[in-house]
Design a protein around this nucleic acid. Structure first.
Lengths: 245, 245
DNA sequence: CGGCGCGTTGAAATCACTCAAGGCACGTGG
DNA sequence: CCACGTGCCTTGAGTGATTTCAACGCGCCG
């Protein structure tokens, strides 16, 4: 049962074993904590559910909490005073949010589909790190990963064409959805506008590139939120910038 | 005396006290190590000097070393197969380089003016972290800082105009050169081409924006590598995107 | 003196944007 | 059941900011 409320609500704070049954523990920062200490972890983590359209981290606000995404997708973005928006990333299952260099968050996080979270207060996370130093190592690994992703995105935003940006986006989504590389079809939880704000383009340009890719028989669009990649080799080549067309 | 050699050379590996006299220790990750253990730190850190134009980190190469910049400036960049370049940042005094999510570096680092470095092998840094856990905390802090900077840069690259990008660059440089905000003049060690590759523009556009700012009496350009900011309020407002002009 | 690296400036071209209209799916209410 | 509104997407036409192409200036150094 999903709860879609105006404000974040605690779903099951009383059950002490939610971490044991959590589907993302093995792939998230939490696997720094041994199974034998699950109760300890569960005591520090508060499960939440956020409805689509609601924000749970706001740029500029004091950074008091950390979150582990256990389901759904959130967009992370920064705004300019006149409303221009840049989405810096999409956070899905296993993503850890809230690492802040100063005392305030550097971006806003908004659910684009219902999001399930584990919340840690700063105090509790600090205590956990104290008791399980491997957790800090995991967080550092995670931050390095984010850093590499951000650098790749800077290359995209600064130097790639619209076609290359959309190809990179699709290739990245496909890789994340199916690391093995077998799947050809994927679900896009975000709108064209959100893709545009992620790629530094406009809605119209994103739409036109999708249409052209389809006309060129490189992709199929069974619905607005589904894409089938018909030519993965071509897609990856275009994404990497090694194509003249 | 500066050494400009084709390959990195060890400057003073034998002196065991170079860390005690290092000007950047108090502001770098090294201050996680207490003064009493300076010999330990000095034993793990190898001072190097890199000549202008030489690279000391190469994208895709195995990430075996970490570096602390103690002087000079390096550009960090990624390349597309056809030569398009995106500079992801400039690393100056106090910067820590080499954090990699995988086993290979995600970017190339090249000296744009003679760079002084402290090199740590992975093995030695791991050992240091083991003995001084605060060091890992410092690294995490540093990575979070980098992450926030990268997100700010994504906003710039994805959503700001050419004028706003150049203004942001100048404002950032001024802030870094003089955090107190007193200085108006600064040195730019990078060429117009490097500024362009950092801001996702062309050389010509950067040059034109500089010229226009000068024509508008907002800045002065005493030489190619010096800028005087005549109107800081205006500069910051334009950088933040809160101006129509 | 001549070549080279770097920067500037102008003119023309282009890629992506803006503006505008219309389509489609979905939900709501008569 | 249909009319209507709304959100999201698509498509076309025209515009414009930035790029491309080209020429030139300047300082430096052999």
């Amino acid at each position: 049962m999903h709860l879609h409320r105006a404000r974040p609500v605690v779903v099951s704070a009383s059950t002490a074993d939610h971490c044991l049954t959590c589907g993302v523990r093995t792939t998230s920062v939490c696997n720094a904590i041994p199974d034998t200490d699950m109760a300890r972890l569960a005591g520090a983590a508060e499960p939440l559910e956020i409805a689509r359209g609601h924000t749970f981290i706001e740029e500029g606000q004091p950074a008091g909490n950390f979150y582990n995404v256990t389901g759904g997708t959130a967009k992370l973005y920064k705004l300019l005073p006149d409303g221009r928006q840049q989405i810096t990333g999409f956070a899905g299952r296993g993503h850890f949010l809230g690492l802040a260099h100063s005392n305030t968050y550097a971006f806003t996080a908004e659910a684009i589909e219902p999001v399930r979270l584990c919340r840690f207060t700063r105090t509790r996370l600090t205590a956990l790190i104290h008791d399980f130093p491997q957790l800090e190592q995991r967080l550092l690994d995670f931050a390095c990963n984010e850093l590499a992703t951000a650098q790749e995105q800077m290359l995209l935003l600064g130097r790639k064409t619209a076609r290359e940006r959309v190809a990179s986006f699709l290739a990245m989504r496909l890789r994340e959805a199916d690391p093995c590389g077998h799947a050809r079809e994927m679900h896009l939880p975000m709108t064209r506008g959100e893709i545009a704000d992620y790629l530094g383009l406009t809605i119209e340009t994103v739409s036109r590139v999708f249409s052209r890719f389809r006309a060129e028989k490189r992709i199929a669009l069974p619905s607005n939120d589904r894409v089938v990649v018909l030519d993965q080799t071509w897609l990856r080549a275009l994404a990497e910038g090694s194509m003249e067309d």
